[in-house]
Design a protein around this nucleic acid. Structure first.
Lengths: 114, 114
DNA sequence: CTTTCATATGAATATCCGTTCATATTATAT
DNA sequence: ATATAATATGAACGGATATTCATATGAAAG
């Protein structure tokens, strides 16, 4: 298994391995965006806070489905919520969520030009 | 109701709708980054082109595993390759891949500050 | 042409995880 | 206190998919 190619590219790749550990966390992060239900929820919330019922109606999803996925997003700190009477108003935790969505959109748009 | 305002609202609604439709494609895109094997491959390739065997050694993965995931990345056009003798040299298709990775890294780094 | 190295592919297994159904919790109103 | 509305949670089922093993393809050397 000799790779005569070595040298520059492999050396760079090996220095990249110093951040190898973070790549597993990164995969975990992207996994949150890898489901259409969650990404639709996140995008809906990018326009402002919404309650569970509104998300459910807006996205034509069962309340239980929305609630389960909100729990996932909550525990990974991508969304937060505040109580208001009987309803819970959810919103994005920070602007990084939107910037990750935007990076993906940019890729899709440029893909279409081919 | 004023015309210009109406068409402006309609335009926003339509663009919002088309974005909503793209969210399913966006989930598909992020799913490619949601696996540690694939993301490690992509990050390794961000340093320059590498052959299958080098990736396999570098990432301590079976050749078959690397090859299968490269096929996924190839078919989704995130990577390309060129033949050189018996080896296939893989590289990232474009710089958007790196920018998506960077957006994720940025989020992780700011997360750590808490 | 056959051997060897590099890579690709197919099939099978195992694990993960999103949805659903049923039920529990929490808050308000009567 | 009970009813009702909003949301959360638990368990189970089903579908997707990453890995492995075995084998096939392809390219170059002897």
């Amino acid at each position: 298994m000799e790779h005569s190619q070595h040298s520059a590219s492999l050396a760079r790749a090996q220095s990249a391995l110093s951040r190898e550990e973070k790549l597993f966390e990164l995969a975990d992060l992207f996994r949150l965006f890898a489901d259409s239900t969650r990404i639709r929820i996140l995008y809906a919330l990018s326009g402002g806070e919404l309650c569970v019922g509104a998300l459910s109606t807006l996205l034509s999803l069962e309340q239980s489905t929305v609630s389960h996925q909100l729990k996932v997003l909550r525990e990974s700190r991508l969304v937060t919520y505040r109580r208001e009477g009987k309803t819970n108003l959810y919103s994005l935790s920070d602007e990084h969520v939107s910037s990750i969505l935007d990076a993906g959109f940019t890729h899709l748009l440029e893909e279409e030009e081919h």
